[in-house]
Nucleic acid binder design. Structure first.
Length: 501
RNA sequence: GGCGGCAUGGCCAAGUGGUAAGGCAGAGGAUUGCAAAUCCUUUACCCCCAGUUCGAAUCUGGGUGCCGCCUCCA
């Protein structure tokens, strides 16, 4: 089955056909770099990362461009508040963005243009629009005239006449008064005193938000691209305006497919900076939630539906990930060596990997592919992963316990084939092995708790007590350690492991 | 008010005409000195009403509830 995608533009799920066979050009709206990314951003970019990985896995040559908006009121406000500059705030948050995306195992975009580096293209585009009569200037600002563009509203389903009457009752501020239509939006904003500005034919100022993306798409990928991505909250006005600008200038369709992801909700409300109900990726990871747990949490829901963020759901994902991770760890020990990490797309195997024919689960690969082809049904795809992983995690556990027969079983051809397949499919979802955090530094970073040596001594004492059938003493030691946050795990062969709970 | 979307077991969530995937939690069992961890087994007729159909969670109409966008937002 060919890839089906739900296109916001047509409100239909359509078969994906690229402009050029075998190649896909993608533009993904990035972040305004005034603060750290939160779970909502993570959801969006994980979803699109899976789209990208799936396309690569399917044999497409993908060009993925994502922008940074590094000129914006919010950045200026932040800079003013902390007494630094726009550049300082931007640079810091771009660095954080790169790190956060990497921690979530999101493939870096092929190119990441910035608004501040795209000014020539922006000015050229505004000039073109002006020459075509689609833009007008007013007091140093330049606006796009929505009434001059037939088809304005086609993405979001808005009707200009209707919206105008709706807007009539609103309070019109100074900026509103300059507009010919309430939906007209700024292409260029005249400089305000004390703010950074850039020269232009319309006077010093800075670009509006929407024009940045139009200019960057054009500079990086051309007039028409295959897929344009973004959050559902960008449909209007951002993407609507982007279409209007680009199509008014070029006369060509901007993007064939528009994909939008659903929001992350908290208590039934959208997670957002303005509501203040957000949790940053960083805060989650620092609180001990693993990156792959976040990935699993996000991928268990369909990308277009709203996703509720609750501690319970996150716990469920953490436990679920533990099982998959155990299977993947066995896979790493059994399967073929990982590929060269320096290759451009190192983690995504190409489709030539041999089929695991002959086994009852041999159709797992095609079921997985069918799930992703069905408008990125990651939830159904994950079900295939869990199915493959089940016997592997059981085996991993037996090996862990020192079962000698288990180690031999791991090399049976069926299990090896299963491992190879699991590894391949997991990589398409961007799920990768997470190793246990090191125990060594615990206790030394301000947290009260026993040092390793002391814990080991206690374990020895308890084992001795157990051997002497002094279970009361053994339990006393265990409870004592538990009070310090140390949990003991008895394993086969008289061994005891421990974890910091 | 306009546009769009969603309602499936205790929680999260697939499934778009043929008799309910998966994860988590729960229950029973195995294992354990007891635990923990782990493994095995197991748990739903799909918001309400009406209709179409041999047959509907899935289609149609109506109702109710919830969410997003209409200002910056992934």
């Amino acid at each position: 089955m060919a890839l089906q995608l739900t296109n916001t533009l047509t409100r239909r799920t359509e078969t994906f056909v690229p402009l050029e066979p075998g190649k896909v050009s993608i533009y993904c709206c990035g972040v305004t770099v005034y603060d750290l990314c939160h779970l909502g951003h993570a959801r969006s970019y994980i979803a699109w990362d899976v789209l990208r990985r799936h396309l690569i896995w399917s044999g497409y040559q993908v060009t993925f461009v994502q922008n940074y908006t590094d000129i914006d009121d919010k950045i200026l406000n932040r800079a003013a508040a902390e007494g630094s500059s726009m550049e300082t705030v931007s640079e810091r948050n771009i660095e954080a963005f790169v790190a956060d995306m990497a921690s979530l195992n999101i493939l870096p975009a092929d190119r990441m243009p910035r608004a501040t580096q795209s000014l020539d293209g922006i000015r050229a585009l505004i000039s073109e629009l002006e020459a075509k009569g689609a833009a007008y200037s007013a007091d140093g600002d330049v606006y796009f005239a929505v009434m001059k563009h037939a088809g304005y509203g086609k993405l979001s389903g808005r009707d200009l006449a209707e919206q105008q009457s709706n807007a009539d009752g609103r309070v019109a501020d100074v900026e509103e008064a300059r507009k010919q239509h309430p939906f007209d939006f700024a292409l260029w904003k005249g400089a305000k005193p004390g703010e950074p500005s850039f020269p232009s034919p319309w006077g010093a100022g800075r670009p509006g938000w929407h024009i940045e993306c139009s200019a960057m798409v054009r500079a990086e990928l051309g007039d028409t691209i295959d897929i344009h991505l973004g959050g559902a909250d960008l449909i209007f006005p951002h993407h609507e305006n982007e279409i209007a600008q680009s199509e008014a200038a070029s006369g060509h369709e901007l993007a064939r497919y528009w994909l939008h992801n659903g929001m992350v909700n908290v208590g039934g409300q959208k997670m957002s900076k303005s509501l203040g109900n957000f949790t940053t990726i960083r805060a989650l990871v620092e609180s001990g939630v693993s990156a792959m747990t976040l990935r699993l949490f996000v991928l268990q829901a369909h990308y277009r539906k709203p996703l509720d963020f609750t501690p319970e759901a996150l716990d469920a994902a953490a436990t679920g990930w533990k099982g998959l991770n155990a299977a993947l760890q066995l896979t790493a020990a059994t399967g073929p060596a990982p590929q060269d990490a320096n290759k451009p797309q190192p983690e995504i195997p190409q489709p030539e990997i041999p089929q695991a024919g002959g086994f009852p689960w041999a159709d797992a690969r095609s079921r997985f592919a069918a799930a992703l082809n069905d408008d990125l049904n990651t939830s159904a795809a994950l079900a295939v992963l869990f199915e493959l992983a089940k016997p592997l995690r059981a085996l991993a556990n037996r090996i862990e316990r020192g079962d000698p027969a288990a180690a031999a079983e791991a090399h049976q051809s069926e299990l090896v084939a299963r491992c190879v397949l699991l590894q391949e499919l997991a990589s398409v979802l961007g799920l990768k092995i997470e190793t246990e955090p090191a125990k060594a530094d615990a206790g030394s970073n301000g947290h009260p708790g026993a040092g390793d040596a002391e814990i080991q001594a206690q374990i020895e004492a308890r084992l001795a007590a157990k051997a002497a059938k002094n279970f009361q003493e053994a339990d006393r030691i265990r409870d004592g350690l538990k009070a310090q946050g140390i949990e003991l795990i008895d394993k086969g062969g008289g061994l005891t492991d421990w974890i910091r709970a």
